[in-house]
Design a protein around this nucleic acid. Sequence first.
DNA 1: ATTTTTATTGCAAATGATTTGCAATTATAA
DNA 2: TTATAATTGCAAATCATTTGCAATAAAAAT
Lengths: 137, 137
Amino acid sequence: MLEALTKKLKSAGYKLTAPRLGILRVFAQSQGRPMSAEDIFAQLEPRNECRCDLASIYRTLNLLEFTKIIRQSDVFGGVAHYELAGEHRHHIICRSCHKTEPLKLCQLKEQEKQFARLGYREISHRLEFSGLCPTCA
Amino acid sequence: MLEALTKKLKSAGYKLTAPRLGILRVFAQSQGRPMSAEDIFAQLEPRNECRCDLASIYRTLNLLEFTKIIRQSDVFGGVAHYELAGEHRHHIICRSCHKTEPLKLCQLKEQEKQFARLGYREISHRLEFSGLCPTCA
DNA sequence: ATTTTTATTGCAAATGATTTGCAATTATAA
DNA sequence: TTATAATTGCAAATCATTTGCAATAAAAAT
């Protein structure tokens, strides 16, 4: 998993540095939960893997998005969250505690095809449910 | 249309001021296109209706959202966009020129009901399509 | 109609997320 | 092992948004 991600980055012509490796590791273990820069920062291991600056995390997020290794999943309260680009997933997000759960289904490809017929290109969509989770409700 | 909006605001117990009236007017004429604070600022008529501060626009947007007159529609690269809460609508947004077109359909209520059965409350969703519009493609 | 009360405004300064310039560092190519 | 070019950390800059506060204006009370 992590293997595949690092390979993708290198074959896109970028160096594999400690911060990048750490961030990819966090994504690899994220279970599909969208994460903010701060979330990732908090999950890095300063002892062994890297003690890196928030600025580097932002730079790395931009790079990983550019190389299509991750994608922006949602912007919640002005804070961008990212997830691995691999699987196409949607979520339900608690408006109170921000806990996020992935969903499996997505029947929206039909809709995209209709737009394609109208001349749109490179179509994608973003679908997020929100509400108060059972705990917060 | 504008009439109904101002009435809603007043009956919620808020004063009808020049900035608020101007902002509601902009929404009333917005054709369902999501707008940012800056977008609205640019559409106010400083001559006759009001020359108001951006801070007041932000404050008014928060108030209108709180009173459920408008709702946040999507977050575009960290910039919040709003639209009238009246109709439930989704959009397709051009990633290049940011032109936005409203869509009519939405078959996602079923999904929401499923979440409700799991204990989620106050459920809503946000669905946006994006791509390159026929002009930009 | 005038005054009083209280919400709302404008301005400027504060905030919070994200970006950027630059010198120092480090991964990779040579 | 050294050279070179990308990447980093740090601090300062930026951008969207929020907030404190004194001045203003809308609606309520007279």
